[in-house]
Structures are given as structure tokens and as C-alpha cells.
């Protein structure tokens, strides 16, 4: 395996982790806000707060890791994406900043403030939407070179159906991932009412999810036929993903094995996400930047990989400790330890 492939695999893996833990977090904020708006906060808020408190910072680090890593492994991506993303990425940063700090302000300052909760929920919709723009741009067709400098055409971007299909998918995916996870978490707390509510959300969002995902593949056919063709070549990955989705839904429908359902859901997204990523190969930004011409020098690549391995040896046990203390500790989960 070449260093380029190792590099992009590591980064793609981290982006995947971010999408899963980020979605749980974003979606939880939305459900929390929604339950307050509809006067049902007593059902959900406690469960959500108990999960979010110790992990929200860690979620953020996955994101930082991804963008620092991509600049490290592929410095040319800093040039292309940095030049064109000024406005969309700044919007994402501002939303992330408001979200992160208001979470802390709310939970340690003035608990139960409706305005904060609403903001927190709104950013949970807006951040995935604004971040997903990067995926759209990487499909090509929105960036042109002007005197050697990449420029983003906002007009093309905002009028493209592909853009909106990806935005819709990102939002629906956030709500789906989050509701599957929280169904399981709520069932662990033995809170029947919250479990029932989250289960209902899973059932609501499951079908739109598949429709939106299918819509993107359809749009790609018009937009970037090369990418569409390589997706067809990897049809089996998407087929596995679909089967996992169906089993997850079946389990939740029958109120069985919520823990297994979470793992299947993660598997479903892993196959779809890696299928998408592999079919995008070798482009980072179609058609200007491939992972080969944007790669860093060999010495840097090797030292980054070494540091990555050493770092993971420290991180994995620590993450395990965190999860054991807050996710799998039966007393904490049931709220007997605050």
C-alpha cells in the first residue's frame, strides 16, 4: 500500500468517526430543542445531557484532527480548499463556536434556558448543512482557475440540485444516526418513555434517509459521470449498506436488540461512506487535485504515520476509559452518579 493511500485512509477513517459522533451530538441538540418547544423536555433532556456532558469536547477534536491531518498529508489541499472555502468554512466555524461555547455556558451557567437550547438545536441542523458543501465542491464543476488561483462560483453551487441533495442527506443522516444511538442509550437508562420517543424518530427518518441517498447517486449521473460510473463498480458496498439499514430498521421496529442496531447502523454508514470515498479515488478536488500530486514529501509522510500510530496507542486506551466511565457504567447511565 502506498503512503498516499495510508494517509487518505487514516483521514477518511477520522472523518467517519467525526460524522458518527458529531451526528449523535448534532441530532441530540435538535431533539432536545424540539422536545422543549413541544413541552416534552422532561422526557428527553436528562438522557441527552447525561450523555453529552463528558464527550462534547472529544467530538470536536475528531474534526480538528481531520483538517489538520489533510493539510499535513496533502498540503496542496490547503491551497485549493483554503482558497475557495473562505466563506462557507467561516460560517461553519462560527456556528461550531457558538454551539460549543453555548453548550458550556448553558450547562454550567444557566440551566434550562430556552434560547440557548433553541440555538443549540438550530446549529445542529445548520452545521452539517454548511460542512456538507465541502463534499459537493470536491465533486468538481464549481471551482474554476483564474490566473492560477482557484475561485468558487457561488451561483453554480447554489443552483445545483446536487448541492441541495447533499445538504438534505447530511441533515437526515444526522437525525437518523442520532435517533438510533439515543434509542439504545435511553433504553440503557431504562427510561421507557424516552426510548419510545427516540424509536419513533428512527422510524420517521429511516425512509427519507434512503431516498436522499438514492437522490445523490441519481444527481451524480448528471453532474460527474466518471464518479457515477465508479460508484456503479462498487455497487456491492452500497448493497451491503442497504441490507444493514433494513436489518437495523427491522430490529428497531420490533423493539429488539437496540445495541446491535447501533452497530449495524454504524456498519451501514461505514460501507456507504467508504464506498463513496473509494469511488472518489484518486481525486481530492475533481479534476484539479489528486491524492498523488498533492501529497507531502516522503519524510513528512512517514513521520506523520509514526506519530499517528504512537498517538493512537495513547488515545485508544484513554477513549476506552472515557466510554467505560460514561457510556457503559450502568450506575452513571441510570443517573445514580452525577
Amino acid at each position: 500500500m502506498s503512503l498516499e493511500i495510508i494517509g487518505i485512509t487514516v483521514l477518511w477513517l477520522f472523518l467517519f468517526f467525526y460524522i458518527i459522533v458529531g451526528s449523535i451530538d448534532f441530532g441530540a441538540g435538535v431533539f432536545n430543542a424540539h422536545s422543549i418547544m413541544t413541552g416534552k423536555q422532561h422526557i428527553l433532556s436528562k438522557v441527552i445531557q447525561r450523555y453529552l456532558s463528558p464527550v462534547w469536547e472529544v467530538t470536536n477534536v475528531f474534526f480538528v484532527f481531520f483538517f489538520v491531518g489533510i493539510i499535513g498529508f496533502f498540503p496542496d489541499s490547503a491551497f485549493f480548499f483554503g482558497s475557495v472555502l473562505l466563506v462557507p468554512a467561516s460560517i461553519s466555524i462560527i456556528l461550531l463556536a457558538l454551539r460549543g461555547s453555548y453548550y458550556a455556558f448553558e450547562s454550567y451557567g444557566s440551566q434550562g434556558h430556552r434560547g440557548y437550547a433553541f440555538m443549540y438545536g438550530a446549529t445542529g441542523i445548520l452545521i452539517p448543512a454548511s460542512l456538507s458543501v465541502v463534499l459537493t465542491i470536491s465533486e468538481g464543476g464549481f471551482v474554476y482557475l483564474d490566473d492560477g488561483q482557484p475561485v468558487l462560483s457561488y451561483e453554480l453551487l447554489f443552483t445545483s440540485p446536487l448541492t441541495w441533495a447533499i445538504v438534505v442527506l447530511s441533515i437526515v443522516a444526522v437525525l437518523y444516526i442520532s435517533s438510533v444511538f439515543l434509542t439504545w442509550y435511553a433504553s440503557k437508562t431504562e427510561d421507557q418513555e424516552a426510548t419510545g420517543m427516540m424509536r419513533k424518530y428512527v422510524l420517521i427518518w429511516a425512509v427519507p434517509l434512503i431516498v436522499a441517498a438514492g437522490g445523490i447517486i441519481f444527481e451524480l449521473q448528471n453532474h460527474n459521470s466518471a464518479h457515477f460510473d465508479s460508484i456503479l463498480n462498487l455497487w456491492w458496498m452500497f448493497a451491503i449498506s442497504f441490507v444493514l439499514w433494513a436489518i437495523t430498521l427491522w430490529l428497531i421496529w420490533n423493539r429488539r436488540k437496540y445495541g446491535l442496531a447501533v452497530w449495524l447502523m454504524i456498519g451501514q454508514f461505514a460501507f456507504a461512506f467508504f464506498g463513496y470515498g473509494i469511488s472518489h479515488y484518486p481525486y481530492l478536488l475533481y479534476p484539479y487535485l489528486t491524492i498523488y500530486d498533492g501529497f507531502t514529501n516522503e519524510a513528512m509522510a512517514i513521520s506523520l504515520i509514526v506519530v499517528f500510530i504512537l498517538g493512537m496507542m495513547l488515545l485508544l486506551p484513554s477513549l476506552y476509559l472515557l466510554l467505560r466511565l460514561f457510556l457503559f457504567d450502568p450506575k452513571y447511565v441510570k443517573g445514580k452518579r452525577e
Binding site: V61, V68, G69, G72, L304, V307, G311
Partner: peptide
């Protein structure tokens, strides 16, 4: 890139 990466 190395120290940036290690900082994370």
C-alpha cells in the same frame, strides 16, 4: 505539519 499534528 508534524508539530501541528502532534498538537492535536
Amino acid at each position: 505539519a508534524l508539530p501541528l499534528f502532534m498538537e492535536v
